[in-house]
């Protein structure tokens, strides 16, 4: 067992993780089967995708949709289904670009 794993005596009470949210260190997007692709040219910035994404994976800057956080996106397809302009389409993950 790797040495850096803590023993039961070193764990916080109730498994409560100090320091707030853990998504920054835990990348949970690896089990995606389908990948949403954003087509900027079709996008009208209505932010419906951002509103509906169950995993907070629509990236925004100054209240504008700027892309998808593939480190956490689960590929559920909600964004593609809700988009009124078909500006998000789903492709099989294996066809996606590595690391993008």
């Amino acid at each position: 067992m790797p040495a850096e794993l803590k023993t039961w005596k070193e764990l916080p009470l109730g498994g409560v993780v100090p320091g707030g949210t853990t998504p920054e260190i835990n990348k949970t997007g690896s089990w995606r089967a389908e990948r949403p692709i954003w087509h900027e040219d079709k996008c009208i910035q209505c932010l419906q995708c951002w509103l509906h994404c169950p995993d907070d994976s629509i990236l925004t800057k100054q209240q504008k949709m700027v892309g998808i956080d593939y480190d956490h996106c689960k590929g559920c397809g909600v964004c593609a289904a809700i988009c009124p302009k078909d500006a998000i389409t789903m492709i099989p993950e294996r066809e996606g670009q590595c690391g993008k």
């Binding site: 023993t7 764990l11 498994g15 409560v16 993780v17 320091g19 949210t21 853990t22």
Partner: peptide, 23 residues
């Protein structure tokens, strides 16, 4: 002092957390 409650524990930590509960 933010904290995460009800976090997921994989096989590498679930056992230790349950042992701590027994304590």
């Amino acid at each position: 002092r933010p904290s995460t409650w009800g976090a997921f524990a994989m096989p590498d930590y679930y056992f230790e957390l349950k042992r701590a509960q027994q304590a």
